[in-house]
Design a protein around this nucleic acid. Structure first.
Length: 464
RNA sequence: GGCCUCGUGGCGGAGUGGUUACGCAGCGGACUGCAAAUCCGUGUACUCCGGUUCGAGUCCGGACGAGGCCUCCA
């Protein structure tokens, strides 16, 4: 089975061929830990989790190294620490912010059904590698020190701008940034900058300071994946400048034509047709959403749209997702399948076409219905587990809706018992009255005969 | 202003030049005391204007519309 991936570097879908099939290497830009992760942050997490699962399936569970970093040095973190912990020394305050935020992030993404990456390195634990890269860049003439800063000399790199397809001349012409006096070129960017007493800093050959904005990913990918590797992923907004500058740093430091062979970028997310922003009041954190929706519903909603397309995140879509998962759990939640259907894997091999994979799941569901065979049902369950679903039993899943509403369960059960008695007495007026009463409570009831005993049983759940 | 995506049925969302995507909703039927759930069946589309072609949702050009990046945002 051939895996095809769209490569931002070439703007084409290409056959994937790993440098070393025994160790497929992928790096994905992770969160900056200063605040709750929002649903937009969840998109690359889910997308590249799927790719991780697919690569493990194709090359072997232990043949894939997936690195997703934690950015724990950033001026936004410093600001948040000063705001939230004014009484603490800055370093302690920063530690409070980063450790609490990271713990929240890990809990959030675990609830989304993602596997833990192989390595989750922290920027602050790779300062030595960053300094080593800067020293290489200075030695090779691609960086220079000025006024306590070290800057990358953009014009020294002949094909700077290849990833984002931005010719240097155009960028300079359209530049809207203030040019700092210590910069030689307008587009030069910071590798190292000085820290004041009140800012976090590390000793370096250029004085006490902290790393620039793009250096950490070059350092961490180098440390954990080597000078070149297979796949680099992130949100499409990172193409420029973040990834472009990462490429520049890594390639010029190590002297390779490429940093990663394949660059993958997920599209953006809108909320109810509008850009998500705090000022519009439609800023959705993963954590908030998890209060109302199972993590698998969020995951499935994300998968309904191909990763490169923009996605419109709506309540309607979430409700539809929940309904679909209800059906699948009801239909196959407790069958033991663990292997994915070939058609589902093939769909993902087509540049991670999750919409096509979902269509295949529906096909399996329909085939199992029509033939009554256990094969398709097993394949449905196995495929869903492969894709990160069916972590619950069917019963536990069904209970989620009930726990989402506040009702007096004992009272509901009593009403249902009364209704059953009325029905057995063929007192339809009374049984309908009780049903209306339950409906008014926001509940729906379902009558079903136990196929074994023929006994009538009634179940309930919140109305959708 | 520069660069880059994208415009498919009521909604979501696939479609690599040539027979049905699929799902949800809707509608019809079965089942049910009536419902719900379930099962069976089913209609509706390719933004507009040109061009290439025997044939275009699919390729080319243009118009209009939407979104993104160029500001340490996934």
């Amino acid at each position: 089975m051939v895996l095809k991936l769209y490569n931002t570097l070439t703007r084409e879908k290409e056959d994937f061929s790993p440098i070393d099939p025994a160790n497929v290497r992928m790096y994905v830009c992770g969160p900056t830990v200063y605040d709750f992760a929002h649903i937009g942050n969840a998109r690359p997490v889910i997308v590249f989790d799927l790719l991780f699962r697919l690569l493990r399936h194709l090359y072997g569970t232990n043949a894939v190294t997936y690195v997703r970093n934690i950015t724990d040095v950033d001026d936004k973190i410093n600001a948040r620490a000063a705001r939230d912990f004014p009484g603490l020394p800055l370093n302690d305050a920063i530690r409070q912010v980063t450790s609490a935020t990271e713990a929240q992030f890990q809990a959030d993404v675990a609830a989304l059904g993602t596997l833990a990456p192989t390595v989750q390195p922290r920027a602050t634990e790779h300062i030595a590698e960053m300094i080593a890269i800067i020293e290489r860049l200075i030695a090779s003439g691609h960086a220079y020190a000025a006024e306590g800063h070290v800057l990358f000399d953009v014009p020294s790199m002949a094909d700077y701008g290849r990833l984002s397809r931005r010719p240097l001349d155009d960028m300079i012409a359209g530049a809207r940034v203030d040019v700092a006096p210590y910069k030689r070129g307008e587009m030069d960017f910071v590798l190292w900058k000085p820290s004041t007493e009140n800012e976090p800093g590390w000793e370096s050959p250029w004085g006490r300071g902290r790393p620039g904005w793009h250096l950490e990913c070059s350092a961490m990918s180098w440390k954990h994946l080597g000078e070149t590797f297979d796949i680099h992923g992130g949100g499409i907004d990172l193409v420029f400048p973040h990834h472009e500058n990462e490429v520049a740093q890594s390639r010029c430091a190590f002297g390779h034509d490429v940093m990663a062979n394949v660059w993958m970028h997920n599209g953006f997310l809108q909320v109810e047709g509008e850009k998500m922003s705090k000022s519009l009041g439609n800023f959705l954190t993963i954590n908030q959403l998890l209060a109302d929706w199972p993590g698998e519903v969020l995951r499935f909603t994300m998968m309904k749209t191909h990763y490169r397309q923009p996605i419109d995140w709506t309540v309607k879509s979430l409700e539809e997702s929940w309904k679909t998962l209800d059906d699948w759990y009801w239909f196959a939640g407790d069958v033991p399948g663990t292997r994915p259907a070939k058609a589902v894997v093939e769909a993902l091999c087509d540049d991670l076409s999750t919409p096509k994979a979902i269509a295949e799941l529906h096909a399996l569901r329909n085939a199992a219905q029509r033939t009554g065979g256990e094969g398709a049902r097993d394949a449905l369950a196995g495929s869903l587990r492969f894709l990160g679903f069916f972590a619950d039993t069917g019963e536990a899943w069904a209970a989620r809706r009930k726990s989402a509403v506040e009702v007096d369960v004992a009272a509901v059960e009593a009403l249902i018992a009364d209704r059953l008695a009325a029905r057995q007495a063929r007192n339809w007026a009374e049984s309908d009255r009780i049903r209306d009463q339950l409906t008014a409570m926001g509940l729906v009831i379902k009558d079903a005969k136990d196929p074994a005993t023929g006994e009538m049983k009634t179940t309930w759940e919140p109305a959708r």
